[in-house]
Design a protein around this nucleic acid. Sequence first.
DNA 1: CTAACTGCAAACGTTTTGCAACTTT
DNA 2: AAAGTTGCAAAACGTTTGCAGTTAG
Lengths: 140, 140
Amino acid sequence: MVSHKSKAEVIDLLASHGVNPTTQRIIVMQTILERCAHLSAEELYQIIEQSPGRRGVALATVYNTLSLFAEKGLVREVIADPSRVFYDPNTSPHHHVYNVTTGELIDVDADRIKVSGLPSLPPGTDLEGVDVIVRVRSPS
Amino acid sequence: MVSHKSKAEVIDLLASHGVNPTTQRIIVMQTILERCAHLSAEELYQIIEQSPGRRGVALATVYNTLSLFAEKGLVREVIADPSRVFYDPNTSPHHHVYNVTTGELIDVDADRIKVSGLPSLPPGTDLEGVDVIVRVRSPS
DNA sequence: CTAACTGCAAACGTTTTGCAACTTT
DNA sequence: AAAGTTGCAAAACGTTTGCAGTTAG
């Protein structure tokens, strides 16, 4: 499912989620879809900066744009490492394997992992999601 | 299971995990055990600073000490919020409910939640743990 | 023309680090 | 004395913010 979407498709995708498709937002979305990986804002910024024809997106704009995408459901924030937030273009329900030694993050389909016996939610709260992170270590 | 351990018990606990029981480490461990809650290093520092008879632990020492405790298995790091790490004195297997609105973190016994169908680990890696975080939101 | 968006730099909060001083044996 | 530990201040890190300037409908 490596999406190699055209610019027009990216514009539609943004628009369909209520996001005004500006030049910079299109660049950010195209880049994260192409890589189809778990990238931090900083990493994504570096990639964009080195892509010919895509320069001219400020680091702050990358942060703001990814944050907006997450809010609008276009990407998912993955909180696995205290030092950085990963952004995941895969928005279907799934979980992660995180290698604490290498920083590598791998998707696991949600229908592979079953979570049962969830507690009743605290009164007055709505469920936002269930994150499962399998932490592994590469022995040194 | 609210542990109100004596100083001698805390010293034994540290020593049994290979941690040299210095004055500051004893204070940090006593404080986190007493509160028996999920505290960030900063919060723990504030509490220690305001406890009579326990002043004199620098913020950097609190960070370093908690990090050491986590490494030695005396506390658990909980990564639920990108902006801060929580430290949990409950080291038995369990999971968490995290209220993204209030920042409140609640323990859930591991035997209540069942996780099945875990993927086989990537070659050359050892399992470190499985974290389940149920994210809830308080509607505004 | 106007509203929305971006770039930049500066601010922010958390965490780490360098190093001299201080314990403890 | 030697080894380990601490406090402090400063640095580092990822991230957010304020605002002037730009872009797009």
